[in-house]
Amino acid sequence: MKLKERPTWKELPFACCIPEPGNSVYYKTGDWKTLKPVVDKTKCIKCGTCWIFCPEYAYEEDEYGYYESNYEYCKGCGICYRECPAQCITMEEEVVE
């Protein structure tokens, strides 16, 4: 059961329990950032360090085993840039058209 965006008091579940587990994925935190990480796949060694150290869990593995940041959730903290052992991640300014 998915809650409506702004439920009225009659539509709220009993005791304001949240019926859908993990529904914060609908809340996109990607617009918090000023710098975005860009992965250079020619230098990437597929170690997964960026994936395990990401506090937003934004890194996703693609079918070839590379990791890429999901900009809908990435808050731009730069931990992946600092921790990458191959130094293949650069922080670039996010430009909004």
């Binding site: 150290f53 937003e56 731009g76």
Partner: peptide, 25 residues
């Protein structure tokens, strides 16, 4: 060895911690 860590997440993304939050990690 980091690739060997479990893949399932039971604490999902979209939480509202500050950038670079240590406890959330």
């Amino acid at each position: 060895a980091y690739r060997m860590a479990p893949k399932e997440e039971f604490f999902t993304r979209g939480h509202r911690a500050c950038q670079g939050c240590g406890p959330a990690l």
